[in-house]
């Protein structure tokens, strides 16, 4: 890969988002653009009102559910693993293992390959395809959990702790705070895998996305809106709600709930205590520290650009590994006006 081409001359961050200059498109733009490649459906990656969007079929449907008619003017479905050419730049979406439909964007131009991983994780998830490492020259990684203290526990262990708590407090409602897209469905799927077959009660905002998961063949079992529950139904039951809702009004509808929060942040118990979480579950859709390092190795990248999260420690780690690490925010800042 002894290309003389500097990668940051053809892919760099701008005010609208990460921009691929020869292809004239953005990846996960933060503001409205003409041509966008969207890695997955979370709100900080998939924004409404772009003109044309390339994404996986799942991501497109998620955007339609969330944004309706304003999702985008035109959608182009990318089949994972199949290359698409945009103005001479080859774009391939490859599973990222983050949530349903999530993908890495593999960009190739003039013999150079850059992988924009988006958000990703390496462990198996019943609700999405497993991450596939791609050899590349430049790997762009998230650093959400960019400190060596962050190591997520095995899913089965955390679900086991959850079910043990349900048995120990058979009269209290377990009120789970989880993001409505991805974590919610994965949590239910893990519960079902562990043999939990009672109804799971959901905050109304989560139902449409769960139905969509069903359309893509992910069976979540008996799920019901919590608004239809009578008080007796909830005693000893499981309710899932977005993190904000879980501590607010809903918390008062159920008497003496066990507040559960499923997130990689829960690894640090002080976080759990600060948020009033009684049962912290270390369950994340993002790569933990060992996974990030393993992935950098798997890609064989000589250069790694680090974005959202704790860049400092991860960049230090890249140096220790002999990899050229840069904060994505600093990429392309040397002279070019964008």
């Amino acid at each position: 890969m002894a290309s003389l081409l500097r990668p940051d001359t053809w892919l760099y961050p701008t005010g609208r988002g990460l921009y691929c200059a020869p292809g004239d498109f953005y990846i996960d733009p933060g503001r409205r653009v003409d041509r966008a490649v969207v890695t997955h459906g979370h709100g900080d990656h998939a924004r409404p009102r772009n003109v044309s969007v390339l994404a996986t079929a799942e991501t497109i449907e998620i955007m339609k559910v969330r944004y309706g008619a304003r999702a985008a003017q035109r959608f182009q479905t990318a089949v994972p693993g199949e290359a698409v050419s945009i103005n001479g730049v080859t774009v391939t979406l490859v599973p990222a293992g983050h949530i349903l439909g999530s993908a890495q964007a593999v960009l190739e131009w003039q013999g150079q390959r850059i992988v924009v991983s988006g958000d990703y994780k390496r462990r198996r998830d019943p609700t999405c395809e497993l991450f596939e490492p791609v050899r590349c020259d430049v790997f762009i990684t998230e650093a959400t959990f960019g400190l060596p203290i962050f190591r997520h526990e095995p899913d089965a262990r955390e679900i086991g702790r959850f079910l043990a708590s349900c048995r120990m407090f058979p009269d209290r409602t377990h009120l789970v705070g989880a993001y409505g897209l991805g974590k919610c469905q994965r949590f239910i799927a893990l519960l079902r895998d562990a043999g939990y077959d009672a109804p799971v009660w959901l905050h109304s905002g989560m139902l449409a996305l769960c139905a969509l998961y069903g359309d893509f063949g992910i069976d979540l079992g008996d799920i019901r809106p919590v608004s239809e529950a009578r008080k007796n139904d909830l005693a000893g039951g499981v309710v899932i709600a977005p993190p904000g809702e879980a501590s607010g009004r809903l918390a008062r509808r159920v008497s003496d709930p066990v507040n559960v929060f499923a997130s990689g942040w829960m690894r640090v118990r002080a976080h759990a205590r600060r948020r009033g979480v009684e049962l912290p579950l270390v369950l994340s859709d993002h790569a933990d520290w060992p996974e990030i390092i393993e992935t950098v190795r798997d890609t064989g990248a000589e250069e790694v650009w680090v974005t959202h999260g704790r860049e400092e420690a991860l960049l230090h780690q890249m140096t220790r590994m002999g990899v050229n690490g840069r904060a994505l925010s600093s990429v392309g800042r040397d002279g070019r006006v964008s």
Binding site: A270, R310, H316
Partner: peptide, 22 residues
């Protein structure tokens, strides 16, 4: 690595918890 340990401790706050997590 001393710097990684230091950053971790700054983040967690508690020496005992940091050591346990690392």
């Amino acid at each position: 690595d001393a710097r990684l340990a230091e950053w971790s401790k700054d983040y967690v706050g508690d020496v005992f918890e940091t050591a346990a997590l690392l």
